[in-house]
Amino acid sequence: MAMNDVISLLISGLGLAGIYFLLASGLSLIYGLMRVLNLAHGAIFAVGGFVGWAALEYLPVEPDWLRFTAALVLATLAGAMLGILIEKGLLARLYGRPYAQMLLTLGLAFAMTAFLGGWLGHDPLTLKQPAWFDEVTVIAGSRVVNSRLVIVGIALILFLATVVFLRRSKHGLIIRAGVNNRSMVMALGINVSKSFTLLFVIGSGLAGLGGVLAGVFFGSVTPELGTQQLIFAFIVIIVGGLGSLEGTALAALVVAVLQQFVNYYGPPGAGDLVTVLLLAVMLLVRPRGLLGKVAA
């Protein structure tokens, strides 16, 4: 195992971990607080990817790093707006009916994916990334593509921001307590649904932004981007433990780095297989996950 490969794979793994984290963290907290399994979360991720693609393709903004920043902001906003529409417009009408909510979000996932495909086609659309992203930086003698470093940096900042939000803000406090015991939070006179709407919006915004980073990581976006990555997000959530942000981050690292290494050194597809094996082992040995707050 050459040292150069190890560092490069590690940073790729970190980047992929960041993408998994952005997709999985919202999903995990939303389920942890309200027991809503939002199967449309992957579709929001894909929409974010397309908004990012469109912004990089058509926005008349120079220099290119500014255009990329605008793409991230627009994709986040698009995700957040979709989040408000789904939560306030649809899910809020089905409180206390978990199966109806799940079917609704499943239907939305199919519809949104089909809509994207019908509008923009199913061929991969290549993202026009800033030129600097394709250049390489030498780290400890290993050549690392800059886009990987950008993804790792952005994901790390957002992870820390989410931790601070959960630890320092009143809504964060309500969310952490609500994941633990929602009835008791309500019995303290707190309107949990306000905090839930905020969580849904933040989670959807992060997913939208994650879609752009996924487009950068894989080079292109397709309507099926969300569905494919949602499977790994579920694995990350279960391995990390439902309702735990730190658990999700840790599991994203484990799953993504493992996947990268096995895909590189093993036969094709082995990386994906290993993550599923990891899930199976976890479910058998420790079903509540690494740092789980919610009994599975």
Partner: peptide
């Protein structure tokens, strides 16, 4: 039914209206 993962201060802060 205290919130086990929260600190004592956070448990009380949550109840303050």
């Amino acid at each position: 039914e205290v919130f086990a993962d929260l600190t004592v201060a956070e448990n009380l802060r949550l109840a303050m209206r």
